[in-house]
Design a binder for these strands. Sequence first.
DNA 1: CGGTCAATTGACGAATCTCAATCACCGTGG
DNA 2: CCACGGTGATTGAGATTCGTCAATTGACCG
Lengths: 247, 247
Amino acid sequence: MKLERRLAWPCRDCTVRSSSFCGTLIDRSSSRPPSAQNQISQVFLSADRHNVIRHSGKKYLSGPFVLCKGWAYRFYRFPDGRRQILSVLIPGDMFSAFTLLDPHSDFSVQAVTDIKVCQLGQDDIKRELAAEPGICDAFGKICSIEIDEIISTSIDLNERDAVKRIVGFVQRLVKRLSDRGIAIRADAYPFPLSHTDIADATGLTPDDVNRAIQNLRENSIIDISNNKIIIIDPAKFEKHAMVPARE
Amino acid sequence: MKLERRLAWPCRDCTVRSSSFCGTLIDRSSSRPPSAQNQISQVFLSADRHNVIRHSGKKYLSGPFVLCKGWAYRFYRFPDGRRQILSVLIPGDMFSAFTLLDPHSDFSVQAVTDIKVCQLGQDDIKRELAAEPGICDAFGKICSIEIDEIISTSIDLNERDAVKRIVGFVQRLVKRLSDRGIAIRADAYPFPLSHTDIADATGLTPDDVNRAIQNLRENSIIDISNNKIIIIDPAKFEKHAMVPARE
DNA sequence: CGGTCAATTGACGAATCTCAATCACCGTGG
DNA sequence: CCACGGTGATTGAGATTCGTCAATTGACCG
């Protein structure tokens, strides 16, 4: 992994600055008079697609990171070789917010595309959290999104039907892309994940992911191919969701 | 649900006081000179077994709670009537720690046995978190345990084998019981969950839970019956775990 | 002594996994 | 420029596991 120790590099031109936690962090703390006291230390790194940039159990890259550019995912690997993808990371995502609550949190991270990441100073963030209530609220929000993602994944895995698992997974991902302004058109988004990736996230086999995606394509709901997803029928797509009912 | 608004009631004799977050909270804040400034407001409530004491989507019982006595679980209900149990609550558990980070977090809670719960003042806890670093660390720890539980559940649901799902679920539960000193003997713990409860937590049918439990009993690994669990062969029990490997 | 609920069991069908083979694409090296 | 090798997508057939359904049993309660 290449290391580029530049202090104020790409944030100026960051496309997700306004919609990510790290944007809030940087903009808030720079709204006060700059001093040594409110700098957030940043180290920028880049990695090629398919590289594992963080291995669970190894501490050489600790602390909170932000994905600046490209796609990646957090995952666990099992003794038998299978993986469980915990969350797909898109530009602006922190991995993981919980690192701040629990320094021992443990997972691997692999690049899907070529990526650029930024390591943030853990103590600097904690200082800002204590000093700025607005940042504290923003932190609570990204924690809540992360928990929601895990719980929803849990619920999807419980849901037996392969097609619905994939629809749920894709829906949450598309919503996050949309919230962060990452889109090709109103109904089309980048989608660099392979069938194997989707399989590891949904607990299916790549074979079945393929069959389910074809099913969705034949039924004119969504089309995932050529590194992008097209929402053919938004109404049908929404309806396929498995939402918990109010008790 | 009956309401018993007594201020310093059962905490004096609480059996899990030393091993729970709320014990830490109460003991820490009372180590300072008592004043109106560092009281934690408490409201005690009791409910009968099988009662739903909190409905997702309804706000009449908001804020963080602690389960003082008995068993319960947090869950979602689906439109088709099935439930997903998010976590089993045992005495000393807070539901949920994340309520503090995300006031909109939303779930239902149902009593398994007759229970007693305690509603804590949200603002009081936040005040203590800011004032006492020790409490802040303890809070990070229970958050981390809660996240771990959700992630492990997710991983178990990905695991296709019914027996292993149940072993994973039971293992984590037994570890939490053990950590909190809730045991009948060294190898036996209370276990008031029905097969249906286990099914809703593991994503199986009650039928299959039954078959899996019998399998485990016939293989002399664990025996779940009569509201208790006996670890027949701790070594075999441990080995059945599905632990993520180090990458 | 009915009535309800949970546990149990068996038979059957449906969904998914496994395995194997083929195809399509892409970057590499000759 | 093209053959080659690797990866991912695709497809088919068969095995396995789990869910569904129906019926029985046993425990507990009023």
